Amino acid sequence: MNRKLLLALLFLFTLLKLSAQEKNNAFKIGFNFGFGSEFNNRNYTFTNHFYKMQLYYTLKEKKNFQYEILVQPEVNFGKHQLLNFYFVQPFEPDYLEKRERFTKLKTVHEYVLNLGFLIRKPISKTFSFYVLGSIGPMITDTETERMSEGFAFADVLAVGFSIKADRFQFDFRPSVRHVSNAGFNDKNAGYNTKNIELGVSYGL
Rank of each mutant, 00 (worst) to 15 (best):
R3F: 09
G160W: 00
Y57A: 12
Y56E: 11
T107E: 12
Y44F: 15
F172A: 06
T193N: 05
E97V: 14
L9N: 11
F65H: 07
F11Y: 11
F161C: 04
F65V: 11
S134P: 00
E110S: 11
F11Q: 04
K104H: 12
E100Q: 14
P73E: 07
Y57G: 09
L18A: 10
Q89V: 14
L157G: 05
P93G: 08
N185P: 03
N25H: 10
L15I: 14
L5D: 07
R173Y: 00
H178W: 03
A165Y: 13
K52D: 12
Q21D: 07
G136Q: 07
Y191G: 00
G78C: 06
F170Q: 02
K187I: 12
E110D: 10
F13R: 04
K187D: 02
F129S: 04
K106E: 14
F50R: 05
E92R: 12
L113F: 14
T140K: 10
V108G: 04
L96R: 09
V159G: 13
R173Q: 13
G36N: 01
F39V: 13
G150F: 09
Y130L: 05
G36E: 00
K52R: 15
F91G: 06
P122A: 06
T45F: 11
F170E: 02
N114P: 01
L9S: 10
A189C: 01
K62W: 07
Y86F: 09
F31P: 05
K23I: 06
K23P: 00
I29R: 09
Y56C: 03
F33H: 11
T140M: 07
V131G: 08
G116L: 04
T14N: 05
L118F: 01
F13S: 13
Q21G: 10
T47H: 08
A158R: 00
F170N: 01
H178T: 03
F33R: 07
E74V: 10
Q89I: 14
T144G: 05
